[in-house]
């Protein structure tokens, strides 16, 4: 799956300037970079939340699901929140069990903790089958156990459905665990792209090396 080249300008400042990119189907592509590097803007444009400068579509006609950094819990039970994106009750139960939400099904989503809300939001998104899944730091609010459960679920979803997954993450370890391809962004530009092991172990660009050294990699 290819995304078109795109630019985004805020207050006359170019915050994103990306070339055409390939997002392989059935694989997870991680996007890494410091705060303000344009990762979330990229995710929002692909998710149809934000518009690029040029009014052309950046994606072919496909179904895309987008999980924002802060997902909104609708004013209903956890189960109903999940069923708001599909009517398959057995799928909802399966997702709740996989994410450890089984005992919270009847609870009001407004009463969940940050980590629980993030798990519920992921379960709600995965009720449908998409061709492209865009996840903006899906595990940022979770503890390690929940993170691993979620990663496992995302990985299975990607393999089972054959969809392309774009994972925005601050965790280099998470990128290493899940992604086959990594994109490194800095100040809205694509600095380096390639196979995860290569980019994270033997980066070609000095900027990537410096970024990884900062994270102790």
């Amino acid at each position: 799956m290819k995304t078109m080249a795109m630019t985004k300008t805020y207050n006359r400042r170019i915050v994103l300037d990306l070339p055409e990119l390939e997002l392989p189907e059935g694989q997870i592509t991680a996007v890494i970079g410091a705060n303000g590097s344009g990762k979330s803007t990229f995710a929002k444009i692909l998710g149809g939340i934000d518009r690029p400068d040029a009014p052309h579509p950046v994606l072919p006609e496909i179904s895309a699901g987008y999980l924002p950094q802060k997902s909104f819990p609708f004013r209903m039970s956890v189960e109903k929140n999940i069923l708001s994106n599909g009517h398959d009750r057995s799928r909802a139960a399966e997702l709740m069990t996989a994410l450890g939400l089984g005992n919270l099904a009847a609870q009001s989503a407004k009463k969940l903790s940050g980590g629980e809300t993030a798990r519920m939001a992921l379960a709600r998104l995965l009720m449908k089958q998409y061709e492209l899944l865009i996840l903006d730091e899906p595990t940022a609010a979770m503890d390690m156990e929940s993170t691993l459960l979620s990663e496992n679920l995302i990985s299975h979803y990607c393999q089972e459905t054959g969809c392309a997954v774009l994972l925005i993450t601050h965790s280099i370890q998470q990128a290493r665990r899940l992604a086959r391809q990594v994109l490194f962004l800095q100040q809205g530009k694509l600095i380096e792209q390639g196979d995860t092991d290569t980019v994270l172990s033997k980066p070609a660009r000095a900027e990537t090396k410096q970024f990884l050294e900062f994270y102790g990699i």
């Binding site: 939340i49 699901g65 609708f74 004013r75 209903m76």
Partner: peptide
């Protein structure tokens, strides 16, 4: 804004988005 971002990310229609907003507004 937060509700809209979530609803659009899930591919909900505008009508469903407004329905959810009304539910929040009760």
């Amino acid at each position: 804004p937060v509700l809209r971002e979530t609803a659009r990310g899930l591919g909900f229609s505008r009508a469903k988005e407004y329905g959810l907003l009304m539910n929040e507004c009760l």
